[in-house]
């Protein structure tokens, strides 16, 4: 290609850069403008929604400064992010990442998981709804699940956990509960573990930008070892260290050790049950700050 070609390419129109260079540039952007740029063109949206791109973006942005999520106590308080090591009391030095406007009305909402490869699990006190939240973009979607009937009968608290499976490259939501036999008499407690797969949105089909839709599909997890910590961590917590996400959900800080904590593993009893939800989700992580 000589100079004349280069010039004519530019006059003729078309992107001045090869596609892979454009993707390289895009992968350096924080998540929020990226989401907006999905409406630039179809090819932009396809590029941004692809899993390969999101992996690159995730790797690029994982070198970012660590952030701390702060959620002041109170019913309708926004979430803040502030830089670790920085002075100044939140929220003065912090950036609002979920405003009260976006929180579901009339309920208190709090995180129940650490940031797990870009996503955080939130729980609302209203009807015990769980949300998956992307703190980088502010996107939030309710999990289309219900408290299982058997758990309701035993009046037990149902803990939820969020994890990322590198093999399938999917986020999964795990919940565990003890269910008593429905006849009520025989004490036949069974631990039930349900694994929900969050499915990445197919970029060529469907709507752009929606985190989750649809409930369908099935998935069996046989004889899985389930890390008990994943479920037991679902306690009320107001601080979540976003940087801990790369450690996955095995990580437990010293001050975090609760009952049943530690890397204890156990086999699931045979009476497991399977559910699945196919969810469309966009995973982008970076709350980028300038140093």
């Amino acid at each position: 290609m000589d100079a004349a070609d280069i010039v004519s390419k530019r006059i003729k129109g078309g992107c001045p850069l090869p596609e892979e260079m454009v993707q390289d540039i895009l992968s350096r952007l924080p998540a929020k403008p990226l989401c907006l740029f999905r409406c630039v063109s179809r090819s932009f949206r396809a590029a941004i929604s692809s899993r390969a791109f999101q992996d690159t973006h995730y790797q690029r942005s994982s070198g970012d400064r660590r952030r701390l999520f702060i959620r002041p106590p109170g019913v309708q308080e926004p979430f803040y992010a502030c830089r670790l090591g920085g002075g100044g009391a939140p929220p003065a030095a912090a950036e609002t990442i979920v405003s009260t406007r976006r929180l579901p009305q009339g309920s208190s909402i709090f995180p129940v998981s650490k940031s797990c490869r870009g996503l955080v699990l939130l729980k609302s006190t209203h009807c015990c709804t769980h949300y998956v939240w992307n703190p980088s973009t502010g996107e939030m979607s309710a999990l289309p699940d219900k408290i299982p009937v058997r758990a309701r009968l035993s009046w037990r608290f149902v803990p939820y956990g969020l994890c990322y499976c590198p093999a399938t490259q999917r986020h999964k939501v795990v919940r565990m509960y003890d269910a008593c036999g429905s006849n009520g008499y025989g004490v036949t407690p069974a631990t039930i573990c349900e694994v929900f797969t969050l499915r990445l949105q197919d970029s060529s089909v469907g709507k752009a930008g929606i985190l989750f839709t649809a409930v369908a599909g099935r998935r069996c997890e046989r004889d899985d070892d389930v890390d008990h910590d994943g479920a037991s961590r679902c306690r009320r917590r107001r601080h979540t260290d976003e940087a801990a996400d790369r450690l996955g959900y095995h990580h437990q800080a010293a001050d975090d050790a609760g009952p049943g904590a530690g890397p204890s593993k156990f086999k699931l009893p045979s009476c497991y049950r399977f559910l699945d939800m196919s969810l469309n989700c966009v995973v982008l992580k970076s709350i980028k700050t300038s140093p």
């Binding site: 999905r38 409406c39 630039v40 063109s41």
Partner: peptide
């Protein structure tokens, strides 16, 4: 962005409106 990268907007008006609504928080 379209201007800088010389990109044609290949969405229909309806599609664009739909995306804009879904992305309302980003605007």
């Amino acid at each position: 962005i379209r201007e800088v990268f010389n990109i044609k907007n290949d969405y229909t008006k309806e599609e664009l409106e739909e995306i804009r609504q879904e992305l309302a928080w980003a605007f």
